[in-house]
Structure formats: structure tokens, C-alpha cells
Amino acid sequence: MTIGQTLLGLLEEAGPRHGYDLKRAFDERFGHDRPLHYGQVYSTMSRLLKNGLVEVDGVEPGDGPERKRYAITEAGVTDVASWLAQPERPEPYLQSTLYTKIVLALLTGRDAAGLLDVQRGEHLRLMRELTRRKTEGDLADQLICDHALFHLEADLRWLELTAARLGRLAAEVGA
């Protein structure tokens, strides 16, 4: 899970912070699509605490987890460093839902070409939305949207190629 490491990294950068400030920093930098829930922040912080990656730097009067101020530990710094050094596993989506749907459509005699067209339309609709966001946004928006756009484009190329090979696929799956 990357929320933990992201919060750790923010904590390393900013120095001791309350959970609330970490959430704000996270949302501001990375939460474009999905801001964090408070619950997520506090459960993540207590896990990091249990694992010795953060420590409580101070507690304000009152009760509840939001009173705690956290500081990153040396183990926490090491954890962030090794997470950043570790490449992400490329996800080849070998068992894609779309592939399954297409084969099932062929096997059950449904309109697989139509399914591909509808999916294509859906992909492009999202791409248009991201493009709009990108042209109106700052550099951070552009980079985040571009990442999504390149992935959607790859999917779309696969949809096109599959549409062109539908006849052969039907023969091979025995539809």
C-alpha cells in the first residue's frame, strides 16, 4: 500500500505533524482524484506507529487520535528510501476483464464488435475529460493526466487491434 509510504515521505519532508496536516498535504499534492478520508489517515498512522516507522512527538490535551503529533523515525526514513528505490511492477493486465468479456460475448453469440465500440467510446470520453483538465491545469495536473492518458491510449490501441482480429479470435475460441 502506498498511502503509508507517501504519508511517511511527507512527514520526512515537513517535520513533525498532526494527522490532519498530513492529510492536507497529501490531498494538495496527490489527492486530485481521491482525497484521503480521515479514517484512512489515522488507521495508517497507527499502523506506522506500531511498526516503529513513526513515533509520537507530542500529544495535545484532550483525547482521540487527532491529538497526536507524529515524527518520522530512522526506520521510517529507511523505509521511504527503499520504497523509492524499488521499481514498480509493470502490470501487464494478462487477465483483463475486457478480454474475458469479449470472449464471452463471442461464445454466447452476442455483439462483440459492438461491445468494443462502446468501450472505445467510453475510453475516449474519459480521455477528452482528462485532456480538458490538463489544458486548464498546472504542470502537476498535466503530468497526472498524461499518465492516465497514455495508459488509456494503450488500452484503446488494444481495442482497435482486437476489433481488427475479431474474426480470427472467434474462430480460435470456437464461437
Binding site: R120, G121, H123, L124, M127, R128
Partner: peptide, 24 residues
């Protein structure tokens, strides 16, 4: 596709015929 995403909508031409994905 990334160029087409700058448009308001798209149509697809196949074998000399157009189809409008949105309205289909």
C-alpha cells in the same frame, strides 16, 4: 486517440461508412 481527445466528439470511419459512437 490523444489527439482526438482534444475534440468535442469523435466519429469512426470503417470501410467507407461513418459511425457515431456517442449516438449509437
Amino acid at each position: 486517440a490523444r489527439v482526438a481527445a482534444y475534440a468535442d466528439r469523435e466519429i469512426v470511419v470503417r470501410d467507407g461508412r461513418t459511425r457515431d459512437l456517442e449516438s449509437s
